[in-house]
Amino acid sequence: MIARTLFIPVVLLLVLTFLIGPFLIIVAASFSAGETLAFPPQGFSLQWIFKVFTVDSFRASFATSMLLAVGGTAAALLLGIPASYALSRYTLPGAEIVRTVVSAPIIVPGIIVGLALLRYIVVPMQASMTLILFLAHTALVLPYAVRVVSASLENLRSDIEEAAVLLGSSRLGAFFRVVLPNIRGGILSAFILGFVTSFNQVPLSLFLSAPGVRTLPVDMMAYMEIVFDPSVAALSSLLAFLSIGIVFAAERFLGFSRYV
C-alpha cells in the first residue's frame, strides 16, 4: 500500500528531474566565476552573461537566427493560412496529398533535409546559403502553421462568411473582415510556435552554413568546439528564458495551449 502511494510521486519527481535538471545545471553554470564550463560552478559572477554580448559571431548568428525565425515563420504563415483555409472550407481533389506534403517536414528528420538541400541544391546550384536556410526554415515551420491555423478555422463557423457576403462584402473581403480577425489568436500562436521551433532548430541547419552565415545554435556548437568557457551556458540560459517568456506571455494573453 505504501509502495503504491509512493510510486506516482517518485515517478513524477524523476521525470521532472530529467526534464528540468539539465536546464538548472546550465543556468547555474552560466553564473560561474571560473574559466571552464563546469558544474558545480566555481564562485559567482555575471561576467559570462556580459561576455555573450561581446562575441561577434554570436551577434551575427543571432541576427541570422532571428531573421530566419521571423522571416521563415512569416513566410510559412503566408503560405499556411490560405492553405489551411482551402483545406478546411473546400473539398479539393488531392487535399489529402497536400496535407501529407505539408506535414512531411515533421516526419522527415531535419538532418536528412539539411544534407539533401546541401548536396542537391546548394552545391550544384551555387544557391545563396541564406536563401536556402530561409526556404528550409519556412518548410520546417509550415506544418505547425497549417495545423494551428486549421484548428482555429475549425472552431469558426463558415456561415459568418456567407453572412458577410449577403451584407455586401466580397468573398475576399469577407475573409479579411470576418475570418482573419477571428483566427488572430491562432495565427499569433502559430507564429510563436513557429518562431521557437525555427530558432532552436539544430539538425536542419547543421549542414547549411557558409562563411558568416550560421544559425545561433550551430554557432554555439562550433564555439564550444574551440572555447570551453561558460559563455555558451550563459547564452543558453538567456535563450531559454527568452523562450519561456514568450510562451508564458502567449499563454497569458492568447490562451496559446488551446491551439496546439
Binding site: I160, E162, L166
Partner: peptide, 14 residues
Amino acid sequence: AVGLMFQSYALFPH
C-alpha cells in the same frame, strides 16, 4: 439586396 437570417444567426463574434 437579399437578406438572410441564418439558423445559427452567424453573428460576427469579434
